[in-house]
Design a binder for these strands. Structure first.
Lengths: 168, 168
DNA sequence: AATTACTTTCAGTAATATTTGAAAATACAA
DNA sequence: TTGTATTTTCAAATATTACTGAAAGTAATT
């Protein structure tokens, strides 16, 4: 396959994957483009490459920065901003995990804790089922949480070698 | 908190969580409702409880069944179908992981393998960066894949106790 | 203080995803 | 085979989300 085609396919696939996981397609595509660009790019270049508007490019880049996936650069003597992405897959995974944990897992655990305190009688089946289900999900969520926390602090090599040892 | 309120909050939160992860809100809500219902429910009851149309309820239930999260029951002498969900959080997690792996991870790994074969010269920076990025993501994807496969076969207790040992 | 080079915002529009509801299909019972 | 209960389908309606483009904002330069 040619590089040009491969790049397009990569961008498309990354965009699709993003949208399947609740990340908007364009945002994932901009990220993909930066991931495979040797040099940092201007808003202008991103707009052209992906056929998106200035407003969209701007907002998307801002989002990517808030996710910690993209940074901007100033070049001396130039006024415009250049954007680039960390290309290390492990860092990307960690960053995404960290943000999603903060935005989604933490709030859900908080709620589950509250819901565990629900009042009612052990005689009511709907009470018993509710309590059990919530307790069980809560336990799982806390396990996931702990695992993520470890992963966030871990070095890639250490993390995967432990995984391998355990699953060999 | 009262049971009635707690149930509503749980359904709402589960729906929101689903939609943040690319699962449609109604589908997650129907699942939530079944998770906290001691008895299996009819389409009719689900429609009422969640204020959704017959068509929507029907399609959503079908989807949940295809995800392996819900099953139907026949009751002797009755014509209509009753739906219920497996309430074991570990099974749910496994089931979701399994489906997403099949639908999303497997295809992406296939593509990454193809993209690794891209032709070009080591002198071109854009070729080098592309190859490296793809290779790196591919490695990560394969690690995730292997971990998931193990998890899919694992018993909950075994899985988490290994995790604990390793992360203690 | 005016010009230039950019970035940001956001109301309006477009695109996508979800839901409805009624008709068609199915399946059981008499 | 006809009637009745139930499920399924899907075109159209609605809701949600994403995108555009032009105007307003910012900040460096002359």
């Amino acid at each position: 396959m040619e590089l040009t085609e491969a790049r397009l396919r990569f961008i498309e696939a990354w965009g699709k994957l993003g949208s399947e996981w609740g990340i908007n397609r364009t945002m994932a595509q901009v990220h993909a483009l930066l991931l495979i660009s040797p040099e940092s790019l201007t808003t202008e270049e991103i707009m052209q490459e992906l056929n998106i508007s200035r407003g969209n490019a701007n907002m998307t880049l801002r989002d990517l920065i808030s996710w910690g996936l993209v940074d901007k650069q100033h070049r001396p003597g130039e006024r415009k901003e250049y954007f680039f992405a960390d290309k290390d897959a492990w860092n990307i995974a960690r960053q995404v995990a960290q943000e999603r944990k903060k935005r989604e897992l933490d709030p859900i655990i908080k709620l589950l804790n509250e819901l565990s305190e629900v009042e009612g009688s052990e005689k009511e089946p709907s009470y018993k089922v509710f309590k059990n289900t919530v307790k069980d999900i809560n336990k799982l969520a806390k396990n996931v949480n702990k695992t993520l926390e470890t992963m966030l602090n871990a070095e890639e090599s250490w993390f995967w070698s432990s995984i391998f040892k355990m699953f060999k």
